[in-house]
Amino acid sequence: MTATVLPIALALFSLSLLLNLYRLLRGPDIVDRILGLDTLNVNAIAVIVLGGIYMDSSLIFEAALLIALMGFVSTVAMTKYLVRGDVIE
């Protein structure tokens, strides 16, 4: 049953990624674009995990972990830059 559901879940997540991309390109404010990018990161993690199940390998979870870490750090850095005009004081 998992084999049947897997492509459907991947398709749904791809649709989510497209919607995030729409918000990333459309804006209108920079904060909207950051929000779009942040959500894109989160959904990309799910796509990687589903890919891991499909390939029967947990090797690429390292990549998912990296995206999770870097996504959070970059979101915080960008918003911090907007609020303070500086990332590191």
């Binding site: 559901v5 879940a9 991947l10 997540f13 989510s16 959500t39 989160v42 959904n43 799910a46």
Partner: peptide, 14 residues
């Protein structure tokens, strides 16, 4: 879990 997860995430993106 996989299907409901994908649906809920899609709702968030909508």
């Amino acid at each position: 879990l996989l299907l409901s997860g994908a649906l809920v995430a899609l709702l968030g993106s909508i």
